[in-house]
């Protein structure tokens, strides 16, 4: 499966490469980035590598997945965006639809990059999953920055969930 390249005003979305792991690990060991992800714990190198290797695997097996987000101006990889099938259990409100997710390095926060990247990924998703197909996302109740991004790109909250004892809001959007 060759991963498509998407280009926006300020960003390139492209496949993850082995060389991206250094910046991925830096993000996943930064409290600013991890505060609202998973349990909120920083990842060890081994844990980060597990998550990192799953991403190209998702493309290979499912034909869609997540991209590395690169800032055009600097050429730096600044985060991830894309769709994942997480095989959540049937009782989870986000079960059964491709799930949008994003995370950016702290230095790239506050510039509208997440919104730009998510919009590009959603456009791609519309072509691939079909107009009107449903996508979901799951965000920590306290993650105001990401909640704002979700609103800007047209996600509507429809359910709540709990993970590791922490509150989550569950959103959906028709492509």
């Amino acid at each position: 499966m060759s991963v498509p390249i998407l280009s926006t005003d300020r960003l390139i979305l492209r496949a993850h490469t082995a060389g991206d792991f250094v910046s991925y690990l830096a993000e996943r060991s930064d409290p600013m980035v991890m505060k609202y992800l998973g349990k909120g714990d920083l990842l060890t190198e081994e844990e980060a590598w597990q998550k990192f290797t799953s991403m190209p695997g998702h493309w290979a097996l499912m034909g869609y997945g997540t991209w590395s987000v690169v800032e055009k101006e600097s050429g730096m990889r600044i985060g991830n965006v894309g769709f994942t099938d997480k095989r959540r259990p049937p009782e989870h409100p986000a079960c059964g639809a491709p799930e949008m997710g994003w995370a950016l390095a702290a230095s790239a926060h506050g510039k509208g990059y997440a919104t730009e990247a998510v919009n590009a990924a959603l456009d791609w998703g519309r072509d691939v999953f079909g107009r009107g197909a449903r996508t979901v996302c799951v965000i920590s109740t306290d993650n105001t920055a990401s909640l704002r991004v979700a609103g800007k790109v047209g996600f509507k909250q429809f359910a709540t969930a709990t993970r590791y004892g922490l509150g989550r809001l569950v959103f959906e959007r028709m492509l």
Partner: peptide, 20 residues
């Protein structure tokens, strides 16, 4: 492993080949 955790692990198998 739960199905969800097994799936996360399963994805890594293909990703490991793609990256390395």
């Amino acid at each position: 492993l739960s199905e969800e955790d097994a799936w996360a692990k399963f994805m890594r198998l293909a990703g490991h080949w793609a990256l390395l």
